[in-house]
Amino acid sequence: MVSFSPEVVDSIIRTASLIGAGLAVIAGIGPGIGMGYAAGAATEAVRRQPEARGAIITTMLLGQVISGSTGIYSLVIAIFLIFSG
């Protein structure tokens, strides 16, 4: 029968949770790519229709407020994993 000492148990769980935290943080790439695309499209749009600048900025701002939050979800999980492991 294989059995582990308490230190081994602790270190296995700690390793797993730290690797998990690292993986969770990868999700932050997504909003970055999306926002970058939106910014590129917005510059193009302002060049084409300069009088709609205010509306374009509003659209970008509200879009960014919504899309930034998936990153925070993954950060919340990552910090749970770092501290609870």
Binding site: P31, Y37, A42, S67
Partner: peptide, 10 residues
């Protein structure tokens, strides 16, 4: 969702 939402904003 991050990529998709950004694309929608664009």
């Amino acid at each position: 969702p991050g990529v998709g939402q950004g694309y929608a904003a664009g």
